[in-house]
Computed example of a mutant assay.
Amino acid sequence: MPEGHSVHRIARQFARNFVGKPVAASSPQGRFAEGAALLNGRTVESVQAVGKQMFLETEGDLWLRVHLGLYGAWDFSGEILVDPTIASANGRMGQTNQRGTDLDVPILDAAGENSLSSIGAPRRTRVHVRMSEATRGLADEGAEWPPPVVGQVRLRLLTDVTCADLRGPTACVLQTPDEMLATVAKLGPDPLVGDLAEGEERFVAAVRKKSTPIALLLMDQAVVSGIGNVYRAELLFRARLNPHTPGRDVPEETVRALWRDWVRLLAIGVETGQMMTMDDLSPEQYRAAMAHRDDRHWVYHRTGLPCRVCGTAIVLEEIGARKLYWCPRCQA
């Protein structure tokens, strides 16, 4: 499932390519035909990501809410305007994480996880790129326009030069302004939305009043927005926190440290497009980690492998119907 950094990057792509423009909307699959008809011809006025959900505002006080869920993805094609202030694989990456490390040679992720590097250099370019948790784009010069519909497209949004196809979302619904605000009100704080200090207080209060294991609380989108399986495992390891500890038993200073670490890791994820959670790497180690996801995490997806700190085998268990990776010694 796409985690918070991916959804924020997708929202930024919509902000650059769709806001201020009228869209032709259709539902090639047919499952969103009525909604597409209502959207058709309206101008996109704003876009906002909150955790794992994106909200697209159109004229006439009509909002589109999209939750990609486990299988959803956006496919962009046409002229994609990439923000030159955000690092891409054709420029410098990881300044946030590497304290000034200067990496000028392109880093290509074999798993295709970096959405902006898939789009290409910070300029207008005609491409085809999928944006979800694992993203990959291919140059598509001279392709047919509008692009042919491929597969089950729930919603197609089309400007004169850019196309966005939505496939397999958990939610794709239209909302009134009041309904949109009510949806957001049910979500936990997102470090990139609203006041950081206020978000921290909300997070601390929500965690400290519950007997639920902290591993479940971090995945509860009503407690904190945007954290998924990868960030959950990594945040808990970085805090050396036993995932089964009840929220109310986690020291307040540890809860605050979790929030501040999430603020930091989310910023890195938005900048690089990858869930980089390891610190103080050499340029060579950093390059390897950016190219291969198995080299950029402490415990996630490392079942049975030795802990990078103590050598104990990483444990995999199921909690809340999701996989949890942790070190039984470092996080005892």
Rank of each mutant, 00 (worst) to 15 (best):
G4W: 04
H8C: 06
H8E: 11
F18R: 08
V19Q: 07
S26Y: 06
Q29R: 13
R31A: 15
R31I: 14
F32E: 10
A33S: 15
E34P: 01
A37H: 09
T43Q: 12
T43L: 02
V44T: 11
E45F: 00
Q53G: 10
Q53T: 13
M54P: 06
Y71H: 12
Y71A: 15
W74A: 07
F76L: 05
S77A: 15
L81S: 12
D83P: 05
N90T: 08
G91K: 03
R99E: 09
D102V: 09
D102L: 14
D104L: 14
V105T: 13
L116A: 07
R126P: 00
R130Q: 10
A139P: 01
A143R: 15
E144K: 15
Q152H: 13
R154W: 14
R154Y: 13
L157H: 06
A164G: 08
C172W: 08
P177S: 08
P189E: 05
V193E: 14
V193Y: 12
E198Q: 15
E198H: 13
S211E: 10
V223A: 08
V223S: 03
G226T: 04
G226D: 06
G228S: 03
N229I: 04
N229K: 07
L235E: 07
A239H: 00
E253D: 15
R256E: 12
R260C: 05
D261F: 04
L265K: 03
L266Q: 12
V270L: 09
E271Q: 15
M278Y: 09
D279V: 09
S282H: 02
S282L: 02
P283W: 04
Q285T: 02
A291Q: 14
H292Q: 10
H292N: 14
W298R: 01
R302I: 02
A313F: 03
